[in-house]
């Protein structure tokens, strides 16, 4: 999480950084680098219930709540997906449930990564976004029933 910034503001930041790349390989090298640097998820979390079903790569995603903010951790066996995860976590992690649920995530399209959201069974990015929003929704419902 980047302190005090809204999801929209972080999205703008990411878009700004990506606008510096003028070729596809620079862009992907950056994403691959992000992927390699993503903190690994402890093995105890790499179990079926945390798996996001994509067709090819495996993604594990967990969420935690602290004082109304949702924090995500995730990992994948494919490095480009890991880089995209890293971006999603940077944008979404640490925010309030409603902000996550309502996030439009236009940055994905603006940095030219829409193909990774396509329904081609090729990777789990779309499923991952849905799962992150589902976690936020689940925490929101949990909080509203316990209050």
């Amino acid at each position: 999480m980047e302190d005090g910034k809204t999801i929209k503001e972080i999205e703008e930041e990411v878009v700004g950084e990506f606008s510096l790349f003028d070729s596809w390989d620079d862009k992907y090298e950056y994403i691959i680098d992000l992927g390699k640097k993503l903190a690994p998820l402890a093995d105890e979390y790499k179990k079926d219930e945390n798996r996001v079903r994509g067709c090819q790569s495996t993604v594990w995603l967990i969420a935690d709540e602290k004082e109304g903010n949702i924090f995500f951790k995730a990992e994948s066996d494919a490095v480009i997906v890991k880089g995209l995860i890293s971006l999603l976590i940077r944008v979404l992690s640490g925010h309030k449930t409603d902000e996550i649920i309502n996030a439009k995530l236009e940055f994905i399209q603006r940095i030219g990564m829409t193909t990774h959201l396509a329904q081609t069974r090729s990777n789990g990015l779309l499923a991952m976004v849905k799962q992150m929003k589902n976690y936020a929704l689940a925490y929101k419902l949990k909080n509203s029933t316990t209050v």
Binding site: Y28, A78, I80, N123
Partner: peptide, 8 residues
């Protein structure tokens, strides 16, 4: 991962 190669 095969998927990474396919994307590139």
């Amino acid at each position: 991962h095969p998927q990474d190669i396919g994307i590139l």
